[in-house]
Simulated assay, not measured.
Amino acid sequence: MAEPNLRDSETFIKSILNTTPCHIYIYDLEKDLYIYSAPYSEVMLGYTPEEMRNMGDSALPNLIHHADEIIFNQTIQKIMDAKDNEIVEGEYRFRHKNGKYIHIFDRVMVFKRTVDGQVSQILGSAINITEYKKKKKEIFDLAQFPSENPYPVLRVNRNGVMYINDAGQKLLKIVNYNQIPSIFQENVKFTFENSQITESEVEFDSRIYSFRITPVKDQDYVNIFGMNITERKHVEEKLKEVNKLKSEFLRRASHELKTPLISIKGFSDLILSLYEDQLDSVIISKLREINDGCERLQNIINNLLKASRLESTELKPKLQKEDLSFLIKFCVHELESLAERRNQSIKLDIHNELYANIEKEEIHDVLSNLLTNAIKY
């Protein structure tokens, strides 16, 4: 009866070893190799029990992650100092046959000692805790999210919302966590596909929020950070309006300065050209100072006009019904002195009234430039 009972016990033990979802092993510390490895080793590490044994003394150097060698050696030292039936635990990374590392949790005890009491073999059971470590990290990362943040904070994967703080829930009122909120779907998809930060602005009940969607390296989720920018947008609109007014002022002021300036310079040039030989040197010097001052002021006015045009790209021309005939005559009158100084004359043959929808200042510039160039060149 003893032999059948023994066989039954062996069968029972083998059944346990074959069905237990952990890697049970016996490791010989003197020979530095696995002398037994349960079948689950192939599931957990990708190696069959025979492959584990055939690794010989190269098993641990090939399997253990180099960064965890110190922790592993500390575990071995603890088991060397352990009493019988005392269990020593350790966590480290082992390399799977596919080349990737997995996290394992190892429970080890003394299995056999030498004659002088030194530990020669250890019995261990190791389980794969990679998923556990991953979830633990996710929980830790989520714990870092500022739940008291007054602005919306979300974490979203491809299937839905993983986390949302109180401020986000109050604003977005999410009911179904198994889908990405519609306002983020397009940008979240782009962020996943391109690993690039995206930003968007959304209006909620007259409040404007800016949302920044940030990819997380080596993770299959993105973080979404929102901020109420309503006041900032109002300030921006006010600044735009102020800039428009400033540009309009610069433009009109420049035109108002330019008109008399042309006359001043034209008549001073005319006086110099006609009466220079009859004037004393002091008056001639003053007239030339007037001319130089006019040129400097002309440059300043031109710069002001350029600045107003650059800053008023959104300004539309203010068209009004104006007498184009009067405007042409006015420009000719302004430039008569310049024409006379060059022994030229301007003859007009136009109708007394030519009405058109124009912006008077802009057309004045065009006509003035055309006539000036015609006189000079």
Rank of each mutant, 00 (worst) to 15 (best):
Y163V: 02
R155L: 09
A167V: 06
D166C: 08
K173F: 06
A126P: 00
N178K: 02
I129E: 15
G124M: 03
Y177E: 02
P146V: 12
K134Q: 13
R155K: 08
V161S: 00
G124P: 02
L154T: 03
I180N: 03
K137V: 11
V175A: 03
Y132H: 06
S120H: 14
L123W: 14
I129F: 03
F145N: 10
V161H: 07
G124Y: 14
Q179Y: 07
D116W: 13
Q169G: 04
I139T: 14
V175G: 01
M162K: 07
M162I: 14
Q121L: 02
M162E: 06
Y151R: 13
L172Q: 04
Q144D: 03
I180E: 07
E131N: 13
L142A: 05
Y177Q: 00
L154F: 06
A167Y: 14
I164V: 12
F145G: 05
I139M: 12
L172N: 08
N178E: 07
I180P: 01
D116I: 10
I164Y: 13
L172T: 06
K112N: 15
I122T: 01
T114C: 14
Q118G: 13
Q169T: 09
R158N: 00
I122K: 00
I122N: 00
F145W: 11
E148Q: 12
Y151K: 12
V115T: 14
F140E: 05
F111S: 10
L123A: 01
E131K: 04
